[in-house]
């Protein structure tokens, strides 16, 4: 199966955008999962709901909200452009942001589940052995959360490959910049005689998704064995 240059572009873009979205949201997801499980936090319910909102909102709405906030005249987007020259709308960076927001709940969920499985008594043990908060986090909690972090990252990456609604709404459908796999597929379907292209792209999406999920499970198992559980 030979791919055209445009199709290769779409695959490459999808992979790079999904990867960037994961790298960007991972530290934040760890922090939020931590806050949601370990801290007695005011407004925890609200934070929980906010994080999970992208799961229930139509993706178009998320894209629209991003446009309002991060658009050239949005409060955050305008500030970013003015001070750092960063433009998010119509760029692949913006696509990564939209993808990150959409897959954020998946990542938080996976990390949270693994965090809940970590005996909080181990932290007390580390304290009595002289480990301060950061020390404990990096030498005890983080290694023990690793299965969840890896599983969450791979799941979010796989889901990010196929993000459509939020991306097309926020950064539009620009070939070579924001036209990822699903957007290319959609474009092919809109084009007369694009059926063959669409079928090829669908097959690629299917394969990538499957590989991603298998990889997530495999990594999680390996790490669990490493941790002796």
């Amino acid at each position: 199966m030979m791919l055209t240059a445009a199709e290769v572009d779409a695959v490459r873009l999808s992979l790079s955008i999904a990867l960037r979205s994961v790298l960007f949201s991972l530290p934040l997801a760890i922090l939020v999962a931590w806050l949601l499980t370990r801290r007695k936090l005011h407004g925890r319910l609200l934070l929980d709901a906010l994080v999970h909102l992208p799961l229930v909102l139509p993706p178009v709405v998320v894209g629209y909200l991003l446009l309002l906030l991060f658009g050239m005249r949005g409060p955050i987007g305008g500030w970013l452009y003015e001070h750092f020259g960063i433009q998010l709308v119509f760029t692949s960076a913006g696509a990564a942001l939209a993808t990150a927001v959409m897959s954020f709940p998946l990542m938080v969920r996976a990390i949270r589940i693994s965090l809940e499985g970590v005996d909080s008594g181990l932290e007390d043990a580390a304290r009595t052995l002289g480990a301060g908060p950061w020390d404990r986090f990096f030498t005890v909690m983080l290694p023990l959360m690793l299965p969840g972090i890896l599983a969450g990252a791979v799941t979010a990456f796989s889901a990010g490959l196929g993000e459509f609604g939020a991306v097309i709404t926020f950064v539009s459908n620009i070939p070579g910049e924001t036209r990822t796999l699903p957007l290319a597929l959609y474009t092919a379907l809109q084009t007369p005689g694009g059926d063959a292209v669409a079928a090829r792209l669908a097959t690629i999406s299917f394969t990538l998704g499957l590989l991603g999920l298998i990889a997530a499970e495999y990594i999680a198992r390996r790490v669990r064995r490493m941790l002796g559980r």
Binding site: D119, G121, L122, D124, A125, A126, R127, T128, L129, G130, A131, G132, D135, V140, P143, L144, M226, L227, G228, R229
Partner: peptide, 20 residues
């Protein structure tokens, strides 16, 4: 003083060894 500054060795009922 914080627990991590007290230098009190603690042996818990359930050992609490680090599994990793």
């Amino acid at each position: 003083l914080r627990a991590e500054h007290r230098r009190i060795g603690y042996v818990f009922q359930d050992a609490r060894l680090f599994p990793h």
